[in-house]
Design a binder for these strands. Structure first.
Lengths: 184, 184
DNA sequence: GCGCCGACAGCACGATCGTGCTTATTCTGG
DNA sequence: CCAGAATAAGCACGATCGTGCTGTCGGCGC
């Protein structure tokens, strides 16, 4: 059920995810579905949590299963690309981020927390690569995390809105530039 | 009137911009306001056009008024930063982009066209800097435009959602890295 | 000075929104 | 086997959505 919710939310946005339409999709009555979540905000939060779990499963965990250091960063990036291309939850975060960026509430708080966690995870992987001697000690892990996220935002944009066939190539080059710049 | 529409749309999104709330904001009756636009889609398009004009005025024109080459690119970037920080239209494009990225229609078409125009403008400025000898001839103008847009997306994200105090510093560093990488 | 035309308000419409309350069915533990 | 909890439907509510139609102004051209 949450899977379908994530899927439709990634299309129409987390705010545009309406209880009626979702009930229609799941083939449940509106009130029947509403009973599961006590409010729309709770629904949004649970959808977000579910998407976060998917992201962890499909992107973060394969990365930490990979070899520590640069390979781990590369795995993270590759998995992220895949999820952005063919799985709904990836898109949910970026659309939800722009939808809730200036309307306070627990949904927004959740988004901020998740993002900071992700940034910290990336920075940690980066530091590991530094301690492996694969990246320069002068490089800034937080800056890398920020830049990598920006690169992915650019990918989403070019992929989904523009449908630029060069999107993936551009994104790969941007990632390589980020890495090579972190080596000097 | 369109100014206020852009302002509220940048807060609640272009899809969340409702005729009733806008009429309330402008202190007009719903039907009185509706008479100006013949449909909601027309309203959205006109809001987008208005935002685009603001962007051209405040970002692109000051850039082309600056010295050709690298200074022009730097002016563009600086103005863009300012608009993102303290003016509504800047945010509209990024939120509208994620809202309409997978619901076809003329709004989306307009967004795509505007974005491609902007990318082409940036690429053109980049080529001018190359022909001035300030940037390497090996560098890819379209790649630079794509990367710069990604950097700005990252700025919006860090500024508005995360409210990261380091957002601007990070973005400046990312821009400098982009430029220095285009010189070698 | 009169008529027209555009800007606006008032009102109504069907639809859908989020959210309750009241039932009926189904599952489950003792 | 039966009581009670979970799960669902049905229905209703006030609000708001986008969109029409009708009427009332006020300004401008003849």
């Amino acid at each position: 059920m949450l899977d379908q919710a994530v899927e439709v939310a990634s299309r129409v946005g987390l705010a545009g995810l309406t209880i009626g339409s979702l009930a229609n999709q799941v083939e449940l009555s509106k009130s029947g579905l509403f009973a599961h979540f006590k409010s729309k905000e709770q629904l949004q939060i649970q959808v977000l949590q579910h998407a976060r779990e998917s992201f962890t499963d499909q992107v973060v965990r394969p990365a930490v299963a990979a070899q520590r250091g640069e390979p781990r960063l590369r795995t993270l990036f590759e998995r992220w690309l895949v999820m952005a291309r063919e799985s709904a939850p990836g898109c949910l975060f970026v659309s939800a981020a722009t939808e809730f960026d200036d309307q306070p509430g627990s949904v927004r708080d959740q988004l901020v927390r998740d993002h900071k966690d992700l940034m910290e995870s990336i920075a940690q992987m980066f530091r590991a690569a530094v301690s492996e001697g694969q990246l320069s000690e002068q490089a800034d892990p937080e800056q890398f995390a920020h830049d990598l996220y920006a690169v992915m935002l650019g990918y989403f944009h070019a992929l989904r809105l523009i449908q630029d066939p060069a999107a993936e190539r551009r994104t790969r080059r941007a990632f390589e530039n980020l890495l090579s710049q972190a080596k000097s």
